[in-house]
Computed example of a mutant assay.
Amino acid sequence: MSKKKPLILVTNDDGITAPGIRTLIEVMNTIGDVVVVAPDAPQSAMGHAITINDILYCNKVKVAEGQPQTEYSCSGTPVDCVKLAVNELLDRKPDLCVSGVNHGSNSSINVIYSGTMSAAVEAGTIGIPAIGFSLLDYSLEADFEPAKKYIELMVRQCLENGLPEGVVLNVNFPKLSASKIKGIKVCRQANAHWEEKFDKRTNPLGRDYYWLTGEFINKDKGEDTDEWALEHGYISVVPVQYDLTAHHAIQTINTWDM
């Protein structure tokens, strides 16, 4: 690999053949030397899960001919992919990890369930600048073309400027044509949640089973949130920290009689 180009690790949670990751690989090939380590099947909503009670398989593959990247298909989760890449497959630490482009939103509360973002967070925990990209379109025929120039812009800026210690970026694209995207807004995560329900059914053998459903509820009216930005035609960029300590609560908890 060229020493002059940055080494970029690419992963996702939709699987190595998903259109979103193929788009991301295409853009990254214009910027650096690319190694792809991604799940061999969809791993959506896996969060930060890792494989500890089963074996992992990782095979070198060639998904698309005529492209320079090195690719590995992994039987594990998105976080497994990052761990394997850094500890076993790469001969040096990546200069950047990019994850996605996810098929569907990872804004607001969705960030904690997201395998896409957990892969980026995992990279961040070991000192690798990382960005997770998502498009608000679940379709396999989703149009990623409008996102390409913004992905390249943000990646080049990240490589040039770096990220604050302990921070990764959560980037979401609205489902809009290029001409309708108004620009980029750096935001906070909206205070929203899912009101979950379970659709209970019975199989032919008489055994009950459940499908998780729900409604996304956003009562956060702030105009500085990712949800506001996406609803108004902007790309949202939320700096995410993986230190989960609620620092503001330490003093309060210390007043308890313990």
Score class of each variant (00 low, 15 high):
199 D>V: 13
124 G>F: 02
253 I>K: 10
32 G>E: 04
55 I>G: 10
257 D>M: 09
254 N>I: 00
118 S>W: 04
192 A>T: 03
110 N>Y: 00
72 Y>I: 12
60 K>H: 06
56 L>Y: 06
18 A>V: 06
128 I>T: 09
233 G>Y: 00
126 I>R: 02
179 S>T: 12
159 L>F: 05
159 L>H: 03
25 I>W: 00
161 N>H: 01
183 G>K: 03
201 R>S: 11
172 N>H: 01
121 V>N: 02
180 K>W: 02
205 L>S: 12
36 V>M: 03
164 P>E: 15
12 N>F: 06
75 S>Q: 08
232 H>F: 04
4 K>T: 11
7 L>F: 09
90 L>T: 05
82 V>E: 06
96 L>V: 00
213 T>D: 11
148 K>L: 11
5 K>T: 14
146 P>Y: 13
188 R>E: 13
105 S>W: 00
43 Q>P: 03
97 C>E: 08
69 Q>S: 12
243 D>L: 08
231 E>I: 02
94 P>A: 06
202 T>H: 01
243 D>N: 13
18 A>R: 06
77 T>Y: 04
15 G>M: 09
67 Q>V: 15
220 D>P: 02
162 G>Y: 06
252 T>M: 12
80 D>F: 10
178 A>D: 15
134 S>R: 06
36 V>C: 08
95 D>W: 00
160 E>A: 13
58 C>W: 07
195 E>S: 14
71 E>Q: 15
244 L>T: 11
9 L>I: 06
38 A>K: 01
190 A>M: 05
52 I>K: 11
212 L>H: 10
196 E>A: 13
238 V>P: 00
165 E>C: 11
60 K>D: 02
198 F>P: 11
5 K>P: 05
174 P>E: 05
42 P>Q: 10
42 P>D: 10
60 K>Q: 15
102 N>F: 03
149 K>I: 11
104 G>L: 09
43 Q>N: 06
156 R>W: 01
144 F>I: 05
172 N>W: 01
167 V>N: 07
59 N>P: 03
82 V>L: 08
28 M>L: 10
249 A>I: 15
222 G>K: 02
8 I>R: 03
210 Y>I: 05
77 T>Q: 07
175 K>H: 12
89 L>K: 07
183 G>L: 09
97 C>M: 12
108 S>Q: 05
106 N>I: 15
59 N>I: 15
77 T>N: 01
186 V>S: 10
137 D>S: 07
64 A>S: 14
85 A>D: 07
105 S>P: 13
58 C>D: 08
150 Y>M: 12
101 V>D: 01
190 A>R: 00
2 S>G: 04
138 Y>T: 08
221 K>E: 15
129 P>L: 08
165 E>W: 00
133 F>E: 07
245 T>H: 09
239 P>D: 09
139 S>E: 11
87 N>H: 13
233 G>I: 04
246 A>C: 12
232 H>M: 12
234 Y>T: 02
57 Y>M: 14
76 G>N: 03
246 A>D: 15
91 D>H: 09
48 H>R: 09
130 A>R: 02
257 D>C: 07
211 W>Y: 14
210 Y>F: 13
215 E>G: 07
195 E>K: 14
146 P>W: 12
177 S>P: 11
6 P>S: 07
194 W>A: 04
148 K>A: 02
51 T>M: 10
222 G>Y: 02
163 L>F: 05
244 L>I: 15
170 N>E: 04
88 E>A: 03
